[in-house]
């Protein structure tokens, strides 16, 4: 098999991990913050006070948006 310098693969593995996961991490990170924390400068790289409030209001709240989220979840399931 081809021999490759270890730094090449280590760099490559690190790149693939960062490239794929940073944007997804950033979305998760933002989802666990309050509106105020999201728009702070500089941004919070980890949620200062992690909260599931966004998920709760999306899945359990009342109003047009949570209603349609619940309805489409049901539609996807069916």
């Amino acid at each position: 098999m081809k021999r490759r310098k270890p730094w090449f693969r280590r760099f490559g593995v690190l790149f693939i991990l960062l490239w794929s996961l940073v944007p997804i991490y950033w979305a998760v990170n933002a989802s666990l913050q309050t509106d105020q924390q999201i728009s702070s400068k500089p941004a919070h790289y980890v949620p200062p006070t992690p909260t599931l409030a966004n998920y709760v209001s999306l899945l359990g709240g009342s109003g047009a948006l949570p209603d349609s989220v619940r309805r489409s979840s049901l539609n996807i399931f069916i």
Binding site: V22, P23, I24, W26, A27, A30, I38, S39, S40, K41, P42, A43
Partner: peptide, 18 residues
Amino acid sequence: SAIVWSTIWDSNAGLLNS
């Protein structure tokens, strides 16, 4: 994925700007 990246390119609180 476009929505995910919009929080990176964002001009007010984006990751890249920060």
